[in-house]
Amino acid sequence: MAVLDAFYHSLGWLWLVLGAGFFLAGTVALIRFPDVYSRLHALTKADNLGLGLICLGMAWELGWGRQSLKFLLIWLLALLAGSVSCHLVARFALRSGLGPDDPP
């Protein structure tokens, strides 16, 4: 059973590391991408997935129970806030005349 346990925990760590990787990729994209829209696109997609994986990894490692639902709720709320604020920033940029290729 020790082998199975080790496999289980290594999977948990895999989610956490993958999540951190997505955050890193999103942040690099935020700094390196040329305009508002591609930055927003990269940032929100990557961070949402990254947070989801980190929440999964935490629930995985801390044992399934009531707190797993809290992690799920945290992720869903972040998804909601992320998509709404992304939409608002993009709309504001579009209305103030920023084109897809203009520097922010």
């Binding site: 709320l77 909601l80 806030a81 998509s83 709404v84 939409h87 608002l88 709309r91 504001f92």
Partner: peptide, 19 residues
């Protein structure tokens, strides 16, 4: 202010305020 007509704002208000 926030673009209050947006459907997304409406959805967010409906979800976040009760929460």
């Amino acid at each position: 202010t926030l673009d209050p007509d947006s459907a997304l704002i409406d959805a967010m208000v409906r979800l976040l305020v009760p929460m």
